[in-house]
Design a protein around this nucleic acid. Structure first.
Lengths: 161, 161
DNA sequence: TATTGTTATACTCTATAACTATA
DNA sequence: TATAGTTATAGAGTATAACAATA
């Protein structure tokens, strides 16, 4: 057991003080962790936004810019810029849509696939150094939390009051 | 049990395939969650970076800009801008250092304290709507994961590669 | 007329390098 | 000379509004 890791939240309900604290800390923790992990990759020149979009293309296959923007939770103009930067580095290909002249299809290129594979390999390097002090249980917890975070991202958020 | 939430990571070690996948997903999950939560606050005009710095000042007390930059994991010039924006909204006060004329002391103002309190209250609103579908166990898991994320942020990261 | 993608514009976050004031 | 903070500058991420091409 280390520090505050095992603070008991077992009796937490959605309106409990602990749940409220979680809500406040969740945003701040996410931005701090993203800040901390930015640039810590096999290729430090690729940004997390680019990596996120590219990994979605690899995982879910080719799609239109609009669809990718939807999957990533950004507006279409933002995705246009991300795709442009990926395309400039030949990590994605842009193909015309087979039936709709307005749309295009964005697909990970061979280089893009290779980059994602490299990232997966390189992850192990810093993982062993950085996460080595976490116990198997803590790693398991973090793995499950990442799954929950992924589900949360999929869920619509109500406007704050 | 919902979807992939309860995938078993119990046998995960630092060099297992699951751990590698976690390392790759952790960065992307953090940036997506931060993106998702940006602007979802009681005061939608305050940014997550500002909120993060202000909450640190509230939690840990007044400190110098350099110390705050260190706590937040950003460079001093970045913190200068965050402090300037907080100061422009009267959320922090800047006082001269008692003994060292080069330094200043930044402290949360009464308004800053009130804003953090408001955020905590408002969190409950969207929490109940957004996280309502999570079970008590999943909330507990997420709460513990936030704790681990906080500890990870404190830990030095080796260069990738 | 509606939809898709892009361009124009603006603001925030962040960094490095250079500068100012004080120790 | 060294340190703390700021200013200058630059690049990435994001958004909204306006635009062009196609359906």
């Amino acid at each position: 057991m280390r520090g505050v890791l095992f603070v008991k939240f077992s009796n937490m309900t959605v309106s409990s003080p602990q749940a409220r604290a979680l809500a406040g800390e969740l945003s701040v923790s996410a931005v701090r962790l993203a800040r901390r992990l930015r640039g810590r990759h096999a290729d430090p020149n690729i940004t997390l936004s680019q990596l996120s979009a590219l990994s979605t293309l690899v995982r879910e296959g080719a799609m239109t810019p609009g669809a990718l923007a939807g999957r990533e939770g950004v507006q279409p103009p933002s995705m246009t810029r991300v795709i442009a930067s990926l395309s400039a580095r030949n990590l994605v290909d842009r193909r015309p849509h087979p039936t709709d002249g307005r749309q295009i299809i964005v697909a990970a290129s061979a280089s893009g696939l290779a980059l994602i594979a490299d990232e997966a390999k390189a992850s192990e390097v810093w993982l062993t150094q950085w996460l080595a002090k976490l116990s198997a249980e803590e790693l398991a917890l973090l793995g499950q939390a990442v799954g929950i975070m992924g589900q949360l991202v999929e869920r619509p958020i109500p406007r704050a009051g």
